[in-house]
Write a protein that binds this DNA or RNA. Sequence first.
RNA 1: GCGGGGGUUGCCGAGCCAGGCCAAAGGCGCAGGACUUAAGAUCCUGUCCCGUAGGGGUCCAGGGGUUCGAAUCCCCUCCCCCGCACCA
Length: 938
Amino acid sequence: MTNDYSFQDIEEKWIKKWQKNDVFNVKKDQRDSYFVNVAYPYPSGSMHVGHGRTYTLPDIVARYKRMDGYNVLFPMAWHVTGTPVIGISRRIKEEDEDTLDIYKNLYGVPEEKIGDFKDPLEIVNYFSDEYKKVMTRLGYSIDWDREFRTVDDEYNSFIEWQYRRLKDKGLIKKGTHPVKYCPNDENALGDHDLLEGEEAGIEDFFLIKFELDNGDVLPCATLRPETVLGVTNLWIKPSGQYVKVDVGEERWIVAKKAIAKLREQGWMVEEIEEIKGEELIGKEAETPRSESVPILEADFVDLDVATGVVMSVPAHAPYDLIALKELETDIFPKKVIDLEEYGDVPAQKMLEKYNVSNQIDDSLEDATEELYNKEFNNGFISSGFEDYSGLDVKSARKQIGEDLVSSDLAEKMYEFDQKPVVCRCGEDAVVKVLEDQWFLDYSDRSWKQKTHDALRDINLIPSDIEKDFDHAIDWLEEWACTRRVGLGTNLPWDKEWIIEPLSDSTIYMSYYTISKLLKDVDGDLKDELFDYLFLDKGDVSEISEKTGIEKTKIKEMKEEFEYWYPYDYRFSAKDLIPNHLTFQLFHHTALFDEEKWPQGISVLGMGLLEGEKMSSSKGHVVLLENAIEKYGSDTVRFFLVENAEPWQDFDWRENDVKSTQNKLMHFWDNIEKYLSFEDFSKNLEKIDYWLLSRFNERVKKTRESLENHQTRKALQNAFYLFRKDLGWYKKRTNIDREGAKWCLNKVSREWIKLLAPFIPFIAEEVWSKIGDSFVSEEAFPRVESEYINRKVEFEENLLREVREDVNEIINVTDSTPEKIYLYTSSQWKDDLIGLIAQEDDFDQGKLMGEIMKRDEFKKRGEEVNRILDDLIEIVREHNEYMEYASSVDLGEVLEGASDYLEKEFDCDIIVTNEKNPVHDPQNKSKNALPLKPAIYLE
RNA sequence: GCGGGGGUUGCCGAGCCAGGCCAAAGGCGCAGGACUUAAGAUCCUGUCCCGUAGGGGUCCAGGGGUUCGAAUCCCCUCCCCCGCACCA
């Protein structure tokens, strides 16, 4: 029994055998190639069950395709590029408690090893080893000979080549770019470097210049430049520390705190003198439209946001309106945006709606947000504003902003969209504008078009995501592709910069085709080599000369690339559609010929744990290693892919996993038993043909599902539904028969292969009892159409219905029958249903007319009328089988199953025809219908 | 606001594109039974409501429509999730 088996033992055993026989290490041969790949992991922590699913799905597809005759490549590598691991390493150095807790307690890193993590590469080494161990343990059919890391020299050469070629094509350009920055560390900050404000974004403020009569400039910060049309006054915090500064030719007045920000963003700022906010109150300032407005006091002004100088637009800003009211001025709001049903002072409407009566009311925030959104999306500029009147707010904002900037009446400044943003060192972060930032120019029109074109020919799973891709392609603009810090490849022509992670992971799938051969190459990986391999340019001899690599080696690499590429399917998480998955499309279209563009993309959903989102930082995860330890690899694999379709979110429920394990163990027992039924004669009965037919239907559905990566549906058919079929079969017949044993043996041989991609260890173990080969290399079951027998299936369905009917009667009457009489229908009724079955229109009147043309029915007119409804119902119910209706002899079917029925109901079964029933005290026999016998119990 | 995906029987989730075979697969949970010294596991039966004869009723977010017939097609409304934008 099950207890004799240990899944750990068979896992180790088969992993060794596969390795020894190089089952998954592949190279070009005569077979068709099939290249499956998945986003390479960033190994900075332990794998949880969610990761397990990401790699199990491609493995199942790889295993299926391998068994189906393809030469399948499934490679793996390590994405080490970027900053996360550097941050982790620093935090460990600083003995950050949370970090140490996760690494020691959750991930179980040994105490003595933790010290090594002060070197970021050590973290990567440690966890990539662990990943590899777990992946191997799960039976992934990976070709490990092709493994690499993105910090390897060869890979760096490959990335350098890629970037030089992109630059040649004019797809990389230079510009400025705002980043989070720590003035103390003098470093750009990634999310992992922040104590607070990881989620903070950066937004574009306009600094609109208002002039005092002495020529000093008050740069008012606003996100809504269009509202400058409705300014009634300025706000200054009276207690605030302001400062006069020289900025180029101009003298500005800004919050003291703004000086550092302005400097980081490229302004030359020279401090002249400090002033208090109250000194400015009461003065007049001139708007860019040469109107004069007063400077008033307001405590809500935040000196920490941009310049700390604010303009007031009371008609459209609830804050401004309420502040003016509290000051009891006679300033009247000036409307600039028309918004339906909001009247002359939309802000007033919002104050009323939210019932706001003072400046410190919390709902002011909501009122502001609602009004801003409404105006932005539905508002139009009011009349009386020259060129701008009638514009929708979206366009007006853009237009007015540009106009102000181009006439030097405003400048642009960046600021965080939330505060605080704090560096791990404790210093407040600021926005720094990086000069000389390099961008991938995804806004390039023809590049976008080409990428859209590529998308048209890609198999997308699920197909709905095509729209998301189109959207992403259109939406992407310039992408800042380099960073100052982190691991990775330096930008070849500007070594100060490092190519960031999303930008160095775009065409590496092609690199897998040569990575193994490259390892034995000792030579200079010049661009010409990659040009030749990937772009088919240049001459082998010359390249061999130049690089010092043997010609045969180069040719071999070229052949491998041509053989495997393009890839057939790439798997990746759904949330990477807007960036990585779209980027890799862009880069393929930019660099490769059309015939090398991606063939398929399959996206994966997220993982839940007992219905809740998983989270490593909260400890709400199940580590993959622990799950394997507890349930075994087969169970984990099986559960991960049967729980939901790949693109849907799956839910790891301990209870269900347990139940899955039990089912598999039971399956294991049974199938070994069936496989031991060798050498029995093929002496088959009807029910055996039924089982063979069902099995082949299940094979058909399984194949179809797997082609579409519907692993859940595949397993429903390959496992759960066929199990049900077997259950019926075992109840229906005596399986100690010769024929039954032959049949079970025959089906089991195929069944184990059908499940081999999902549960490779059990499959190999069981298979080894009957064959010398690896089941992983056996042929995946094909549909044997000679065994598909619709008529037998139909007859079996009819029998089930009879059983259900009898059961229902027993339940309703609460009786225990000693005899069950089944009356089949008279010949004329059978003829009648045959006639009805030929019609495709079930209109009663028309049918009746048709029927009454025949004398045999006409003479029974009344009876025909009585049962016509039921007959139509029967025809409808069995629609897909009606072609067999006339050839089925229900009496024979029931007689043939009487052993079963007698056993099932523990009583005698008597089958007769309604024409001369043996015993019919209640005159039930007249209810007999074709395909549905009348029943009498006593 | 834009784009995408959804709301199904206690729960998870099929079905919907190609309307009738749908009271609606499968799993989980629950109930009863078999096995067992017992527990677990396994197996069987049941699991919307009514019903002492295989029947009837109600149902697939809500409302309306098309059709002989709608969970499935069309229109409207409400709600949820994801991405993005916008905004504070």
